[in-house]
Amino acid sequence: MSMTNSMAPQNGEDWLKGAARAGYAARGLVFIIVGYFSFRAAFASGQAMDTKDAIEVIAGSGFGTILLAAMVIALAAFCLWRLIQVAMDVDNHGIDAKGVFVRTGLLISAFSYGALAVYSVTLLLGQGAGSGSGGKSGVIAYAYEAGFGVWLTYLIAAGMAAAAIAHLVKGVKAGFEKYMAIPSDRRWLLKPVCQFGLIARAVTFVVLAGLLATGAAGYESGETPGIDAALREISSWSFGWLFLSLTGLGLVAFGVYSLAEAMYRRIEMPDVG
């Protein structure tokens, strides 16, 4: 009996670690799809897509129902893992200004992927197909109706800018390595790919922050731009096709970075027994 009790916490920790790794893998798959179609859009008449569009691609693929169900579970698991990172500070970020900043970003990430999991459920139930990514609803739409949507949009823009800085620093300094145990024979390739992915993700955050800040007063319906809008903005620049193709490749690299986290990240779990 005592042996069973002593094993319970370990079993719980193993389950949560597996859930976290599945979540990283799900995020990786989503960004590989987004990056691929963005790269393709740079050389064709196709359109850039966001994470919801990527989920729709998965839903429409062979074995779509099975894959979508797996995505629901994995994204929900990733949301749970983010919340654990925030609440229990398993990565030892601390409670100083930098630690609070990082943990706030993780909390925003938890809500973002939680919302993506909910959207996946609507597709699984046949309620979200064809909705695309144009209409944003929920908190932002309510905020505009209540009269404080502009300020909320500015706040989100500031958060995007902060996230851009964090991703850029993490990419340039390869700060992710202290949380990952990448085998030495694969580090020579994975390290620069992960750095490129993080920097590309930072670029999309910068563009999004700019779009949000400059257009906040015009989002009266709460339809704020997503990653697809950022990619379209990039494509409108001079030599936009080049920047869009590089960003698309970078988002694929970010997806690879997420898959690397699924395999090699050190996941320290609190006692859950």
Rank of each mutant, 00 (worst) to 15 (best):
M1W: 14
M3E: 15
T4E: 06
N5Q: 11
S6Q: 13
A8V: 15
Q10E: 15
D14R: 00
D14P: 00
W15N: 09
K17Q: 03
A20T: 08
Y24H: 04
A25C: 12
F31E: 06
G35C: 08
Y36G: 05
Y36K: 04
S38I: 15
S38H: 11
S38W: 04
R40D: 11
A41S: 05
A42R: 05
A42S: 06
S45D: 15
D53Y: 09
V57K: 03
A59K: 05
S61A: 12
T65K: 14
L68K: 01
A69G: 12
M71A: 06
V72P: 00
A74W: 04
L75M: 04
L75A: 02
A76H: 01
F78M: 00
W81V: 04
L83K: 04
K98E: 08
K98Y: 14
T104M: 10
T104C: 11
G105S: 11
L106I: 15
L107Q: 03
S109W: 01
G114H: 03
A115H: 04
Y119Q: 01
Y119A: 02
T122Q: 10
L123H: 02
G126W: 13
I140Y: 05
Y142A: 15
I156A: 07
G159F: 12
A163R: 05
I165C: 02
I165H: 04
A166R: 01
H167N: 13
L168A: 12
G171H: 08
G171M: 14
V172E: 07
G175A: 10
G175Q: 06
F176E: 02
K178V: 15
I182A: 01
W188L: 13
K191C: 12
P192C: 01
F196L: 15
G197R: 03
L198D: 05
I199A: 07
A200V: 05
R201P: 07
A202T: 11
V206M: 06
V207W: 00
G210Y: 01
G210A: 01
A213W: 10
A217M: 09
Y219L: 03
E220D: 13
S221P: 08
D228F: 03
D228S: 12
A229T: 10
A230Y: 01
A230V: 12
L231Y: 08
S236H: 04
S238V: 15
S238C: 09
L242A: 09
L251C: 06
Y257N: 03
S258F: 00
S258L: 04
L259D: 05
A260S: 08
M263F: 06
M269E: 07
P270S: 13
D271S: 12
G273Q: 09
